[in-house]
Amino acid sequence: MDKVDRFAAALRPLWVRAQSGDEAAYAQALHLIAGRLRSYFRRRLSSLSDETEDLVQETLLALHAKRGTHDPALPVSNWVFAIAGYKLVDFWRRHGRREALHQPLDVTDDDLLVYETGVDVAAGQDIRVLLDTLPAPQRRAIVLTRLEGLSMSEASRRSGVSVSALKVQVHRGLKQLMVMVRTPQ
């Protein structure tokens, strides 16, 4: 049985009880769903990992508000995933609009920040100056992963910071850098 089947099998009996008014079973079912949603969204939102939990909560609220729309003849996991998929598309649509004003960090910045000695010394110095304005953990995270080109796990071993914390630091640091580059000095 793969992950999705196991989830479906575990959820079904809980859900039947939950729908007929068993609140403990309902809470348990929602926990199970939340865990499954977390990995579902995380896989699809890799660059925006901070948003995952918001989306999990938003989807749980939607499932709760619409629980009368589940037809018992239909597997509850299908119903859950249909709503999760809808919330994901809705999220992308909202973000597409907002993000279009910014310019996606992860695409352009990889090209902007690759550090090659001797290629463009002035640009290298500019980056150093900008980096020095960042808080130390963010600066270290960016130097290790973006300038030295280490993988996340190598950088994590080198700095003693967990991979997920590193990702957040890189993301926030790059965002901060973009803001500074955009603001006319």
Binding site: A18, Q19, S20, G21, E23, A24, Y26, A27, L30, L60, L61, H64, R67, G68, T69, H70, D71
Partner: peptide, 10 residues
């Protein structure tokens, strides 16, 4: 969400 949720009304 779960406390006081009651049965689902289809």
């Amino acid at each position: 969400l779960a406390s006081g949720a009651g049965p689902a009304r289809r």
